[in-house]
Simulated assay, not measured.
Amino acid sequence: MSIARLWAGHPAPDLDESSVERRSHIKETVQHESRVRGIRIDRLTPADLADELERVASLGAGSLPHLRALWRKATARAIALRHIAIDPAIGLPLPKPASAPANRVYKNGARRPLNNSLTDAQLVTLREEVKVRHPQQRLDVGDLIILGSYTGLRINEANSLRWEDVHLGDERSFLIVEGQVYGSGTDRRWEPLLKRESSRRMVPLPPAAVELLQARKERAAAARRGAKASDPALRFVFPTQSGGVPDTVTARKAVRRKLDRAGFPWATFHTLRRTVERQLMDASVDPRVIMAVMGHDPATSWASYVDHKSVDVDVAARALA
């Protein structure tokens, strides 16, 4: 009520220090001068309060939701006392905390670097380290990570690959991205749906990726000899450990653990995608080819003349070889 009276132009009552009980267990706070304190409440505007929130946020002082709640109580009391008819604090949005990319921290405690891509030397190290099978890791995602480092696929796209999407030839090898696995639990299923139409694309494979996929296909066939062709373990490139339809949630967690153990706690699967894009740019590959291979949305740039069907994406495979 004292805040409402003060905003209404009434003087604040004198505080009797002798009547104040000192509570040593309560953390002392630092007082900050408020720029809305001297404004009469009938002249206070939402813009005044919004500016004050921005100022307090820039100082890093106090809890903004708590401050807004105090204002709401004061303005509600002022309305009850008929000092104002409209509440200037209602619907007041809180300013979003500014967080530069370099200051972001992942859940594992690692800071995200500003340039979140791997150097060529780091890429070589990563590909070797993820081949090491940790005894406590049930789902081995080493091949998944290595394939991502050669193709720039999104993690859902890579984890949902079917063998019918993989075309391995003597002269030309490539992947077709046509859909991905949706659902959770026993309801997981592959569907020909993608977030954007530009994600439906052909991705060329460099020789190292071809060797990886050939070896993986042979191992899968040997392990499931006699199984039906419809068996998920034979249908998908990266089935679950038990041979079921790929589980993206499980794969994401396994990738995180694998990257941590490989010595790259700051890297994610998307880091591999950024690395492939950097390599293509460093090789002076036509931006239209990069967009076609990466599956970027042409609506954001090059919209007037990019045609994914008219570019030679095999140039990317030669650049990544």
Rank of each mutant, 00 (worst) to 15 (best):
R72M: 10
V313I: 05
A209I: 02
M281C: 07
E211F: 00
R235E: 13
I39C: 04
R22T: 15
A220P: 04
S19E: 15
D42E: 15
G60C: 09
G226N: 09
P246M: 07
A229G: 03
E128W: 04
G38W: 07
F238V: 07
N156T: 06
A69P: 07
R77Y: 06
P265Q: 13
W71P: 00
S230C: 00
H83L: 08
E171M: 04
D16V: 01
A8Y: 11
A262W: 09
G60M: 13
G152R: 05
R200V: 00
I176D: 15
P101L: 06
D16I: 01
D143Y: 00
G183K: 12
S34I: 00
D143V: 02
A100K: 13
W71H: 03
A57L: 08
S198C: 07
E21M: 00
V130G: 05
R219Q: 13
V313E: 13
D42C: 08
R257L: 08
V255H: 02
D14L: 08
D51L: 01
A317H: 03
V30D: 15
F269T: 02
E129M: 09
H308A: 10
V20P: 08
L193K: 15
S198Q: 05
P97D: 15
S2M: 04
R225Y: 00
A227E: 12
R43F: 01
L59W: 08
G263F: 07
T29S: 12
P97R: 13
Y106N: 07
S63A: 14
Y182F: 09
R224L: 00
T268E: 05
P113G: 05
K96Q: 15
H83G: 01
V130D: 14
Q136T: 06
G169P: 11
V245L: 02
D187E: 15
Q241H: 12
I26S: 13
D170Q: 12
M1Q: 12
R219P: 03
L144V: 05
A299R: 12
R133E: 13
S173I: 08
